[in-house]
Write a protein that binds this DNA or RNA. Structure first.
Lengths: 326, 326
DNA sequence: ATGAAAGCGCTAACAA
DNA sequence: TTGTTAGCGCTTTCAT
């Protein structure tokens, strides 16, 4: 039925050890190696990775746990991670948690059962706070959101600075009634809010903010309601690409003209932001770099399990488009 | 070091078989089951999935091979597939081929080595034509693109009809100089072109068409060049979401006003299409249904390996927006 | 350089 | 219901 290394050995007239060595590029004479290769071709043999992992005790697999792969930010990061991983001979298991702590716990358990080499993880705040990398049995690199107190390695954006960049830009365009919309499950939302609030405080301005579930629908609803109020902001900072999508839908539904009636600026240079309305002003995250840096940190951590945790902080780039211009 | 079922058995004072049964919800008395669970908690035991797969001879894993997860169509399909799969207790391996036949071959080999239960595969035309599901050793369900002659199960859109829908719509809006842009690597592009050409032929009109690599960049370039020509079309049908993105960038770069100077209609109701310009008229694919149907077909095929191959043809829905209105 | 043999952690006969 | 035992296919000593 299924052909094993034993069948190959038999067909080649060598021992299973020799076949294994030939496969692993170990010390095998050219003559035997040729015989083995012929036998593999003749039998149609394919190594069984489960057996290999069981015996060799390394899975060469990393887990990538994100909230939702439909978010273009995570899609882009995951492509970068996968490309690097496959080049390094590692597989990637991708999981979507929908920002649900129960699912996060479930997938972390799965990662243990898969005996993964390591995990790259965009955790909710709740999980990041209680994460115990020691107990998990594999290294974890957090992306997008960091753990408090440097409990784990992390690759993040300088969220506060980026939010400040957006506020400064809107101020330069003459805005003073600036509101902010943020996600309520991640530390990222909190950090961006902090930067937003600090920048406005420094300017002596109020910093009205709202927090919503991290979905386009929630954002659309929140923005619609907010803009209908008497003291509605004239400019809006939106904390991520998903929320920005919802905000933009609200703007369209209300028939508002950007930037005349409302200035809009947000996070994530998703491909559509350049095409919507007059183009949306956004903070571009270095998504490829985030993926690469996370993989690199994971590999470093594997080599030096004891070194102290690090946080790589990357800088966002302000992309100015029509939605925020005076 | 790593705790195995043996350690649990020892701690619980039972045999390894009893632990295994307790884990598999086999016949175990409540008393022993409690002891086992206590021992698992005490030891922090986690089953080793590699060992389980090796011994049980089923991986409970399905492979999902797409061209590029950054394409929102595949992102959406993959989410649907994963949700169904995880509910059915299966894990998913996701691979990106970038429409590269070498990568396709490599990942199919990987699937064999993982001893996957089955594969859902968006193949290039080249690979679909030579696909031999028998030799692979696992069932394959093609998505988005079918194999000629029904060589494998498939879930596809009625591409020709959908393209016809777009042409009819543009005709109704009074257009007669209608051009089409299609991808050059997939059967999907070919089918959409066929439907496009047939619909225009029936109307007694010319059907100028161009074929490009399936990237936004190639589309942008092709559209820019085409619209600069003397006999440029006044309406454009674009074969998928990625190409549509490129086309839209070209439109913006040229400063064209939709739909006054150019009518635009295409495939894939990606979230941005409602926000770009006056909103883009598109064919919406039932992405969730595609994912679900593919998983369902895979499971059916596993139960009935011998039944003849089937092709599930789903219907696209025309979503009319401003980009194509007279 | 090659082979014999042990055993990774688990499930599935088979016995009891 | 429970325990004993034989492998699943592979890598890795340990000999030779």
């Amino acid at each position: 039925m299924t052909v094993s290394i034993k069948d190959v050995a038999l067909a080649a007239g060598v021992s299973v050890a020799t076949v294994s060595r030939a496969l692993a590029k170990g010390p095998v004479s050219a003559a035997l190696k040729a015989k083995v290769e012929a036998a593999i071709a003749a039998t149609g043999y394919r190594p069984n990775l489960s057996a290999r992992r069981l015996r060799s005790r390394h899975s060469d697999t990393i887990g990538l746990i994100v909230s939702d792969i439909r978010n273009p930010f995570f899609t882009a990061v995951s492509r970068a991670v996968e490309d690097v991983a496959y080049q390094a001979g590692m597989r990637v298991i991708l999981c979507n948690t929908d920002e649900n702590p129960d699912k996060e716990a479930m997938y972390l358990r799965l990662m243990q059962e898969e005996r993964v080499t390591g995990v790259i993880f965009a955790a909710t705040r709740a999980t990041a706070e209680t994460l115990d990398a020691e107990a998990l049995g594999f290294p974890v690199v957090l992306i997008d959101r960091a753990a408090p107190g440097g409990a784990a390695d992390a690759v993040v954006l300088d969220n506060a600075a980026a939010a400040g960049l957006l506020v400064s830009h809107l101020r330069e365009q003459g805005h003073s009634r600036i509101g902010g919309l943020f996600g309520n499950t991640s530390s990222t939302g909190a950090e961006r809010h902090a930067g937003f609030a600090a920048a406005l405080a420094q300017a002596g301005l109020a910093a009205p903010a709202r927090f919503v579930a991290p979905t386009a629908e929630a954002a659309q609803q929140a923005v619609s309601a907010w803009l209908a109020e008497a003291e509605a902001p004239r400019a809006l900072v939106i904390s991520n690409g998903l929320l920005l999508l919802g905000a933009m839908r609200a703007v369209r539904a209300l028939g508002l003209e950007l930037p005349r009636q409302l200035a809009l600026a947000g996070f994530d240079n998703d491909s559509w932001t350049e095409l919507a309305g007059p183009g949306l002003t956004v903070i571009e995250q270095p998504v490829d770099e985030i993926g690469r840096a996370a993989m690199a940190m994971l590999l470093e951590r594997l080599e030096q399990p004891q070194r102290s945790t690090r946080k790589v902080v990357l800088t966002g780039r302000l992309v100015v488009r029509g939605s925020s211009l005076a």
